[in-house]
Design a binder for these strands. Structure first.
Lengths: 223, 223
DNA sequence: TCGCATTCGTTACCGTCGGTAACGCAAGTC
DNA sequence: GACTTGCGTTACCGACGGTAACGAATGCGA
């Protein structure tokens, strides 16, 4: 039908988008762990073509994650680039993240828990001689966190002047801050013990060294 | 054999411990996602008795997690209670955590990714009318993080004097700091870009407000 | 001593899932 | 009109979590 224009590549690209949107709908409805069958059904087709497009479930999830991560990253970058003071930028970034996970908790949930990740070493056939030798702790959790961490690290490294070896510090901070945001956001979304603005203030205060500056409680063990 | 003493309850308790140790070995060897079959085989028995003891896989994993979490918590509490300055305590706590995940990455990996968690709402039969209505983002990730966060929040609330409403701030900080530790530790364990001591210093600096105090890079957009 | 209930353990199975092989069918080409 | 080339299907595989139904061993009252 609409095969005019370049060729089939355009068509398969459209197809891919369509499949991703269907997958998105299903994941949004059923949470992570949505089955490939369900996704295929939602898209009006069957499993094998899903696999032809995305390889395996990890591929589909990765593609989905990239979509949403890109959107979130764009919003965060905007907050990070606002022409205001550093404190305001930090607050805006925190608020942007929290607003995003508040608005679409299912998406957020999916992004943070993408089933597994990928290929440890050898699944199992060769006995199991990987033993404790294989570390490779990584990729168990969310690639999103890693991406956000690296992104923030880049911004930090660009903006703040550490001494030599500063790149590593910036990365540690990037991942650390993202983790802080994530964990606090997760807890907050679950229990809603305060408003978003209050949480933003608390976390910004934490990053602003209030932990070091705060007074001990009376009767404490000193310091 | 050793049925003297109270009765069978003692025996089943021993059994349970034995099974948990077997499960521990398997999880340590095969990573999370170790199958119930494998665990049962390691314990020298078959699946159904595992299910009789722990209900379902979540139950077993929860029991395992509690064991390790308790051990880690004890170590962290010791670091948190050291009779030194606040900065030293923070550094000791960070170092304790990082040393733990460094020493046993498989255990750590398992704790942070306990398969799923539990019972969303209705798995699927009733059509799927939960829709986007059900929030309940929680419990998707690790209960360990929550426990650590609450624990740290308690220590913070005990030791630092916030004004009214301080309990919520302490909890936000507790979860935030734990998340920071976790994410940074995860990244560090994966890439090993620096020594443990260096990471501890970087994170402690971050918590000490160095982000607020640090100088802008030359040519930056000002503040 | 026999029967009987209870407990521990087994084998054998179910439903679902991720993933794949083999086939069917339409369209473009000579 | 035969021939390739993709898209899509059905039908299947192996592994998993979980369970039902059945087999010994043990304790106990008659």
């Amino acid at each position: 039908m609409d095969n005019r224009r370049g060729g089939r590549e355009q068509a398969t690209e459209d197809r891919r988008r369509e499949l991703l949107e269907a997958a998105d709908r299903v994941v949004l409805r059923d949470g992570p762990g949505a089955s490939m069958n369900a996704i295929a059904a939602e898209a009006g087709i069957t499993k094998p073509i899903l696999y032809r497009h995305f390889g395996d479930k990890g591929g589909l999830y990765r593609a989905l994650a990239v979509r949403h991560t890109d959107a979130l990253l764009a919003a965060l970058r905007a907050a990070l680039d606002a022409p205001t003071g550093r404190r305001e930028r930090v607050e805006a970034t925190l608020d942007t993240y929290l607003a995003a996970i508040e608005a679409r908790p299912q998406v957020y949930r999916f992004l943070m828990h993408p089933a597994d990740g990928g290929a440890q070493d050898a699944p199992e056939p060769p006995a199991a001689e990987s033993a404790e030798r294989d570390f490779e702790v990584g990729r168990h959790s969310a690639p999103l966190l890693r991406r956000l961490g690296e992104e923030l690290a880049q911004v930090i490294a660009d903006r703040i002047d550490f001494g030599p070896g500063g790149a590593v510090i910036a990365r540690a901070w990037g991942h650390g801050i993202v983790g802080m945001m994530h964990a606090a956001g997760d807890w907050w979304l679950h229990e809603r013990p305060c408003t978003r603005a209050e949480l933003v203030q608390s976390l910004a205060d934490l990053l602003w060294g209030r932990l070091a500056a705060a007074a001990d409680k009376a009767g404490g063990p000193g310091l």
